[in-house]
């Protein structure tokens, strides 16, 4: 009897644990799971689940979340392909539109050419204005003054925006020609001008050393050695002038890289598009 009672209780537990009476794969349950994944930041799997049910549930929230998920994953062109499926009547359409502009800005890196604008509320207008202002950073000349440019941004964003504005319109480029001329006058000074202090000092020391050795050997009538040192010194001298020009060019390439990278990072970090929809509450 003592054995029968535990067995009597255990059998139903095993039977129920494998029960198929609960269907995990209904669209509603898949959506719940996908919502959970989305809130956990697992966008790839969330999109996979949303795409399973999107045929069964005509849901504009899902469409927007898939679009947002792709954008968060860095698949901007894939995200922008979905703007077509966004319903113009949907409450999410302005957000889809803003997101597509953001994606386009990251992808294409060019100024917006007065896009056709859907009906925005005040916060969406603000987001659009900021995106539009950021797109101006890709124009060749500043469209508005720096002070006007700042007005649309929050105070905590202004230092980053100021840096980006300066890097774009007043970039601290170094002149390759000047770097070459400086190194021709004082070996290594062109490198120092391009920010390469260690290389500049090394170039100065090496060139001076060979110049001294050449001079000293000519002075002591060791002509062969003197000419060898002269040749080596001349190559180090000319190589340094060449290298100074190259260093200034690399410095300028770094400025461009920092601008593009900084702007992309700024766009990714500023989430202007979901202030009123907290999907994960």
């Amino acid at each position: 009897m003592r054995k029968i009672i535990p067995i009597f209780f255990l059998i139903p537990i095993f039977a129920l644990s494998q029960s198929t009476s609960f269907d995990f794969h209904t669209p509603e349950n898949v959506k719940k799971f996908a919502d959970h994944l989305f809130c956990e930041g697992d966008y790839l799997r969330a999109i996979e689940q949303y795409e399973l049910i999107n045929q069964n549930l005509d849901n504009d929230t899902i469409e927007f979340k898939v679009m947002l998920g792709y954008s968060e994953l860095g698949l901007y062109s894939k995200s922008n392909e979905l703007i077509e499926s966004c319903n113009y009547e949907s409450v999410f359409y302005p957000d889809c539109y803003l997101l597509s502009l953001k994606n386009e800005l990251i992808l294409e890196k060019h100024e917006f050419e007065y896009p056709s604008i859907p009906s925005f509320d005040s916060s969406q207008w603000k987001s659009f204005g900021r995106l539009f202002a950021i797109s101006m950073l890709y124009s060749d000349e500043p469209v508005v003054s720096k002070e006007e440019f700042f007005l649309i941004f929050e105070k905590d964003e202004q230092s980053a925006v100021s840096l980006l504005y300066d890097y774009r319109f007043e970039p601290p480029y170094k002149s390759p020609a000047l770097a070459g001329i400086l190194s021709a006058i004082i070996p290594g000074s062109g490198k120092m001008y391009a920010g390469e202090w260690g290389d500049g000092i090394t170039a100065l020391v090496v060139t001076s050393l060979f110049a001294f050795l050449a001079y000293d050997n000519f002075h002591a009538d060791h002509t062969t050695r003197a000419w060898i040192f002269t040749g080596l010194g001349a190559f180090f001298y000319a190589g340094n002038i060449y290298g100074s020009v190259a260093s200034a060019q690399i410095f300028n390439a770094r400025i461009d890289f920092e601008f593009n990278n900084g702007l992309e990072l700024f766009l990714k970090q500023q989430n202007y598009f979901l202030p009123q929809y907290d999907f994960c509450e």
Partner: peptide, 8 residues
Amino acid sequence: LMFFDRFT
């Protein structure tokens, strides 16, 4: 020239 710059 590139080599001497690299060497420096």
